[in-house]
Amino acid sequence: MNDVLDVALRLLALLLAFLVLPLLVGQTEHKVMAHMQGRLGPMYAGGFHGWAQLVADGVKFAQKEDVVPNGADRRIFQLAPAVALLPYLLVLVAIPVGPAEGAVGQVVDAGIFFVLAVMGVGVLGSLMAGWASANKFSLLGGLRTAAQLMAYELPMLLTAASVAMAAGTVSLPGILEAFEWWWVPWQIVGGVVFFTAGLAELQRPPFDAPIADSEIIFGAYTEYTGLRFALFLLAEYAGIVILCGLTTVLFLGGWHGPFADGLGWLWTLLKTAVLAFVVIWLRVSYPRLREDQLQRFAWTCLIPLSLAQIALTGVVKVVIS
């Protein structure tokens, strides 16, 4: 009975985090982006500086008609948002928050691989949406999504492998156990590559060619309305949370910091929040990369860098052992 209660509590906490953190990031994006552009952003919803804007948006989305285009492949079209969103919910299970035994949803032995594999599945949702919409813009968006995933999955994997090499384990809590402060400068190149590739996989600006609104309307999500569209948006913001959390755990030492025993979870959240801010910051600062620039950046810049990082990790590892 106690086990059941424990599992239920964990699931509840996860669900809560899954619903709250992306909204938090979304609201921060509203406000930070606005102020970086000399605006105020939402000011009315909820009374105080528009804090309830995203709640209002959610209500609005729920009221909208759920339209399925006539020529679309109905079932796949309707299934796509779930395929896009659920993997991120699953990934959240494996991310350790604090140093304690129970501070992770479920200890996954091959944590890194679990996380990367399941995140890759999420992109299938975009592909399904792009193909099933029976819309040439959606199809183009799907194509770009696939090409981007193909290019950026590799550097992500390689840099994650570099961390795994350094720690000698592929379990996320295990990596945090083994973490030392000097890993940050040691793995910094890998961290930057991982973060950048993750941004590209989430299709966040400046890597948002798959949903470039000035060229292909909204890419794979062009035909979506109402709640299904909201689910895609939620998936994007959940993806930001996951990516920032993962980067924190792999490269920034997760819960490590002063008073880690008591405040470890706070350190994780803080580092994640700073990274999420950087994600928003990058969106505001840089223009969208063209499709060929995207590919060239991945193959001629990120992959060599990540290979160099692996070589460095190997050399240092051999030297210190």
Partner: peptide
């Protein structure tokens, strides 16, 4: 140049916004 772009947006964020309410 990339750093300069980041600096510009960060500086703008710390300044007063121009929105006419």
């Amino acid at each position: 140049g990339l750093a300069k772009g980041l600096a510009v947006t960060l500086r703008t964020m710390t300044r007063k916004s121009h929105t006419a309410q």
